[in-house]
Write a protein that binds this DNA or RNA. Sequence first.
DNA 1: GTGAAAGCGCTAACAC
DNA 2: GTGTTAGCGCTTTCAC
Lengths: 351, 351
Amino acid sequence: VAATIRDVADACGVHISTVSRTFSAPRLVNPSTRTRVLEAARGLGYRPNRVARALTTGRTFNLGLIVADIANPYFPPLIKAAEAQARQRSYHVFVTDTDEDPVVEEDLVHALAKQVDGVVLGSPRVRNRVVEELHRQLPLVVVNRRAEGVPAVLMDVGRGAGAAVEHLAAYGHRHVALLGGPSGSWNNRNVCRGAGEAAEATGVALHVLEPNAPTEEGGAAAALDVLESGATAALAYNDLVALGLMDELGRLGVRVPDDLSIVGIDDIAVSRLTRPRLTTVAMPTAAAGRMAVDMLLQLVDAGPEPTTPRATLDTSLVVRESTAPPPRRRPEPTPGSPSRRDGERAAHTHR
Amino acid sequence: VAATIRDVADACGVHISTVSRTFSAPRLVNPSTRTRVLEAARGLGYRPNRVARALTTGRTFNLGLIVADIANPYFPPLIKAAEAQARQRSYHVFVTDTDEDPVVEEDLVHALAKQVDGVVLGSPRVRNRVVEELHRQLPLVVVNRRAEGVPAVLMDVGRGAGAAVEHLAAYGHRHVALLGGPSGSWNNRNVCRGAGEAAEATGVALHVLEPNAPTEEGGAAAALDVLESGATAALAYNDLVALGLMDELGRLGVRVPDDLSIVGIDDIAVSRLTRPRLTTVAMPTAAAGRMAVDMLLQLVDAGPEPTTPRATLDTSLVVRESTAPPPRRRPEPTPGSPSRRDGERAAHTHR
DNA sequence: GTGAAAGCGCTAACAC
DNA sequence: GTGTTAGCGCTTTCAC
């Protein structure tokens, strides 16, 4: 039902190549015929078919952006910055979510392959081997991952995690629990490394706990483990985990920061709105999104550089209210505090 | 550099159509040649070019999902549900963000047009005329918008807003401030209507304030207006606005709910983590996402139905801790409380 | 400045 | 079951 280039050509008695030029290289066509074509096109509601165009030119003017979990507030600033940057260069960004599943992630790159001019892989969950392999098949920039020969935007979370541990040590904490994240995540390895080194340097005992899901639920689920570990402070893989933990501790009658200190990582928007406000390691996600798009576009326009670009952005510790000196006695749950997360929900709904 | 269908055909001495069939209609080709083709394909790293395929078939097996602001936690559950539903039917979802800009929104639909089999327009900001026009050009399902002849998934936020006002009235509030949202939003019109009707019915005076951005910043910016309005309670266009307002009121020394009650709309995940926990109107966003994809796929597979489907989902008031009876005296800001949002940030960063 | 012709990578009748 | 042919909508040499 949509008008094609031929309809427009017929409508104003020119060859299709003239119509084509009017849209892709207007300067090559006589101004008067150009306006005639444009008018006919408008009358018919014609728009060049981007799929057909892509088939001949090999260019789509789309970029793909793949993230592990779009519901994690960590990603939106990165996404929006990437989109803004791309839009400025007349590219569109297609965002997709892998649900933290490496298989889905790999599948998505392949699915996007010919439909975009390049892909930004945000915090990949696939293994390095796969990243390198994918990079051979299409322009690829990776965020928070080091892979051989693959352009990358890195955020120095190791330092940030280290600063967090030092901050806790300075308060006098001697036992810190570390709530790990996805094992496929470069980010997580760096958190562990950075925290570990700082712990060693400051003589703090680091209790590394099994990773749960990197979500509020994961954080809530870890509450008892944290208490049992005997730690007086916890460093969480991300703010969501920290917030979930903090909330669950509240239910258990453990006060933050009086009984237990908590540090998150990411500095998502809401961390500033909770009570207590969350102490956290701020990640420069917007800058990372912008930069990833810049690198990708350079890759697309100019081909692979002789030297693979790699940018590392600084993180910084933001001290708010969820950290304090350790209590005299180790924290314990107050028996009798119910732990139902949605108790308030069932009772009051209209109709 | 990527292998084409011809490379595979040559590699195993068959015609390209046989290769084509092995991928799009395997049952039509002899099992033995099929495995030969498959092996050659694997050896060459061949994958059918989805763009080329789309050009002939007219089908991409992609869906577009356009949202006003991906950073608004209202959308992710809808997005994830839509993706899950689509994935189950082997479709991919491309998400894009309009930045609340109607012009970008319209442009995005056109850009997506031939690259997807249909689009879900989540909470459109464009005018109805435009929605109807777009619907004529490609399969389209709209969320939270009624437009002539356009399939829609609606959430009955009017009722929810009404329930919120009734809840406040029952507590004894007589003056309620209403913080409106984007004027292009059907949702906002319904909030206003629902709240207005309930206010009338319960004898509550509704103070409708100028809409700010539907974000935390917008809510914070409205704090003084709310106080000046003389209201003892506020209903916000969404949870983000409510949370921003609540936080700013805290800075001004106004206590929630003791001095002022607040009700949000959406029930985003974090509304359960703030102190006080936010009373809000829960929106069934995940169900809406699922349903929108179902409708769209039906539209794509079966063509337009004789009768345009329209589903309306219920909303429900979730009473938490941000509402209470009005104070004896009207709330006033405590002079001397500074209102710097990021004051804590500048001071403590490592290096 | 414009037309003619070839072809991007694939599918879909239609023969055989 | 497989090969042949035409063509999806567009761009891009190459002539004129």
